[in-house]
């Protein structure tokens, strides 16, 4: 398959995270390859979003390493970490657009802070990012004036403002109708294929996973480990793990069925 190559852009090594005595995941290792759409899967409360926040350097892990192009984010000093984080684009679950700014201003903000583009060039770049996510004409809209799906697309445009090497998306399809969700999946695919950007997506929306994912890992709440790795099709058709089977076939727990 064209696209994903074998070199890893991020390596997660023996990562453990806990809040007090509550261990979220324990001694987890995996790698994200350059140019792929990598999906972190799992049931509610298994630590998917926590994993993403640790990977982007928002939370310090209890143990382990995260190597971005062989640079360890965990042990890096603040300045180095900020330099690495500038190469990340992050879309949060709620979109997290700044409510007091128009969509164009939201996308323009990172350009103002971190580039030496002339003012009209910043506008042009920001507008082109909005066009890439099909928000042409909405530049002067405020976040409160657009729908949830549009807000998520605008958040992707802002995350792409500095043309990051890797984009992290937290639950991009959550709360969206199937049509809007499918449109967002197409946006992700076209950005991944055209720009060669690596995507790390946290989700548990099955249709979305089968559309966008090159590879997935599945976290398990009970064991705190990765219980499956592979393509979505491999996990659906060949996994012998009962939880993975349940997840991909949307089956309730037996005791819940009889309850």
């Amino acid at each position: 398959m064209a696209g994903p190559q074998d070199d890893a852009i991020i390596r997660v090594e023996h990562l453990t995270q806990a809040f007090g005595s509550n261990v979220v995941f324990d001694d987890v290792s995996f790698e994200v390859r350059r140019g792929e759409v990598f999906v972190i899967l799992g049931g509610s409360g298994c630590g998917k979003s926590t994993m993403m926040k640790v990977m982007i350097g928002l939370h310090q892990p209890r143990a382990g390493h995260i190597l971005f192009e062989n640079q360890d984010i965990v042990s890096a000093d603040r300045k180095t970490r900020e330099g690495i984080q500038r190469r990340f684009g992050v879309m949060y679950q709620s979109g997290a657009l700044f409510g007091s700014m128009t969509l164009l201003e939201n996308v323009r903000l990172p350009l103002e802070e971190f580039t030496d583009l002339p003012a009209d060039a910043m506008d042009a770049v920001a507008a082109s990012k909005l066009r890439m996510v099909a928000l042409e004409g909405f530049e002067t809209y405020m976040p409160a004036d657009i729908s949830g799906g549009m807000a998520k697309r605008a958040a992707i445009a802002r995350a792409m403002a500095l043309d990051p090497s890797i984009l992290f998306l937290d639950e991009p399809s959550a709360g969206l109708d199937p049509i809007t969700s499918a449109e967002l999946d197409q946006t992700i695919l076209s950005l991944a294929h055209s720009l060669g950007v690596t995507f790390v997506v946290v989700t548990h929306e099955l249709p979305s996973i089968f559309t966008i994912a090159d590879r997935v890992i599945m976290l398990d709440k009970k064991t705190k480990k990765i219980i499956a790795t592979g393509t979505p099709q491999e996990l659906r058709d060949h996994s012998t793990d009962p939880f993975v089977h349940q997840f991909f076939h949307r089956e309730a727990n037996p005791q819940e069925e009889t309850a």
Binding site: R131, M132, E136, G137, F138, T140, Y141, S190, L191, S194
Partner: peptide
């Protein structure tokens, strides 16, 4: 060609009906 695709994605679409600005 691959870079042309990126430019095409960022191009203003001629037929896109721009919404009424607020």
């Amino acid at each position: 060609d691959q870079l042309r695709t990126i430019v095409a994605m960022a191009e203003p679409s001629a037929e896109a009906a721009a919404p009424e600005p607020p």
